[in-house]
């Protein structure tokens, strides 16, 4: 198995974990949200803000802000495009694809040939399948001959979607339609 290296996990203490779990559903929409959070966790607001700053600096938090619901905003076509590109060019090509404004996630993942030859994933949110296809064509044009094969996997149902929980685990999850 290919172990991801969880170096930063060791840097999280119990207070960080409590903070992460307490903000899964977002910050309170009150004038002093960090104070509200601090009161809930028995901390002071300055420490809450300092911890958020540090978690952002260490990359645990990638951003802090409004998280739009793409489906609700009309971005109902969710296409996971997957590409087989040469391993020695995946970093360079991944950065180019990841910089496209319509790509919301861009990752290298291991291939499992022969059934799964793809090593580059680019998530495309758009308002229709036609729009996704148009964007896939743009990525294909960008990759040129490095595109040795690709596929687009559309989601047809969201079967479970919950926030990340480190401990204790949450249960549940219903079925809802996706684009």
């Amino acid at each position: 198995m290919n172990d991801p290296a969880p170096l930063c996990v060791a840097l999280l203490d119990d207070t960080d974990r409590a903070l992460i779990n307490a903000t899964q559903a977002g910050l309170p929409l009150v004038p002093r949200p960090y104070h509200a959070l601090a009161a809930q966790l028995g901390l002071d607001a300055g420490e809450v803000m300092a911890r958020f700053r540090r978690l952002q600096a260490t990359g645990v938090i990638r951003r802090l802000g409004a998280v739009p619901n793409h489906y609700r905003l009309g971005y109902t076509a969710n296409g996971m495009s997957v590409w087989d590109v040469p391993d020695d060019r995946v970093a360079e090509l991944g950065r180019a694809v990841g910089a496209l404004d319509f790509v919301s996630h861009c990752y290298e993942r291991p291939r499992h040939p022969p059934r799964w030859p793809y090593n580059l994933f680019a998530m495309i949110h758009a308002r229709s399948r036609d729009e996704v296809e148009d964007r896939v064509a743009q990525i294909a044009a960008l990759l040129g001959a490095a595109d040795r094969g690709h596929a687009v996997l559309y989601s047809t149902a969201i079967l479970k979607k919950t926030g990340l929980r480190i401990a204790p685990p949450a249960a549940g999850g219903g079925r809802r339609a996706a684009g």
């Binding site: 991801p4 969880p6 559903a25 260490t58 802000g65 998280v67 990340l164």
Partner: peptide
């Protein structure tokens, strides 16, 4: 439902594996 939440977005593999 236009906004899921206002708060942090975590990077995968940094807060757990």
């Amino acid at each position: 439902g236009a906004v899921s939440r206002v708060g942090p977005v975590f990077r995968p593999n940094r807060a757990g594996v």
